[in-house]
Design a binder for these strands. Structure first.
Lengths: 152, 152
DNA sequence: CGATAGCTGAGATTGCGTCTCAAGTCAACC
DNA sequence: GGTTGACTTGAGACGCAATCTCAGCTATCG
């Protein structure tokens, strides 16, 4: 097994079903509202903000509070992750539950997840040299994805 | 030169002077208000929030807006950096302008800056494998610093 | 010293995110 | 197939950080 894996994105329908299944597994009820939220999240190509989701779902009479509750739930379950862009506070991205990092394209906004064993090892080395006991870490790499490199 | 360097903190007075000098270099005026803000920032041991700074400076009749303007300025110049804790949105930390990463102690809140050549290299490798052209990246490592390990 | 561009503070304003609570709905159990 | 109880929801109020505005002030330069 290579130390670096690039996650292949799932189609929207699969993602929606995954979200609903995971909610059920964790003992949450399957409601029409949650299905609508799951569909909206699954349909988004990459990262999105809470605000966007709220605006998209408002015409369907789904309240702000409900959207925020659902986002929190999904972050907790591990199906969404918060990203920390420098400008707007945080955005969310759908992702697999294992530990991984993000390649964020500043041109198209696309997010690719990678599992990076080598980097993990170096992080641990680094912390040890500073007598620091690492618990968790965030790595976000900003740049240009292959598709956007081609079009520019 | 080792690939990993742990930055040694400067005394507060030096930091304050550095801030004022940098502002002048960038063509900004040196005012009593900015000196007070610089002193307040320099006196803080580690990371701090905008709110803390505002509260500290309010009794001196320094307005909210002014503090935020100063923070933005210093981030732009590269003397402050925004950190992204998971809970409260962002906090600031004083830091040297070169590229580096942070070891954030979740117990005492202390921030240590490290320059990590090896990790940088692995990041580039990782991006190359994904056909991604990296421009910048953030690495934040959360855990327990040496002092806090001892007291627990 | 005088002019002016930059800086400042107070308060209004915006907007994200949270809280509350009554009403609605799912799911388990009979 | 009903009943029950706990979970879920929407609307609006709310709290709070951050931004905006604008009139007055001041550092800097000539």
């Amino acid at each position: 097994m290579a130390s670096t894996q690039i996650a292949t994105p799932q189609p929207a329908e699969v993602r929606k079903q995954t979200i609903l299944q995971r909610l059920a597994e964790h003992g949450y009820r399957l409601t029409a509202t949650r299905a609508a939220i799951a569909a909206a999240i699954a349909a988004r190509p990459a990262q999105f903000t809470a605000r966007e989701l709220v605006e998209e779902l408002e015409p369907q009479r789904i309240g702000r509070a409900t959207v925020f509750r659902a986002l929190d739930l999904l972050v907790q379950i591990g199906l969404l992750e918060r990203l920390h862009g420098d400008l707007s506070c945080h955005s969310y991205t759908y992702c697999a539950p294992e530990h991984h990092h993000h390649l964020v394209c500043t041109s198209c906004g696309g997010v690719t997840s990678v599992v990076a064993g080598t980097v993990e090892r170096e992080i641990r080395n680094l912390a040890r040299q500073a007598n620091f006991r690492p618990v968790t870490h965030h790595i976000e790499i900003y740049g240009t994805c292959q598709a956007c490199q081609a079009t520019n």
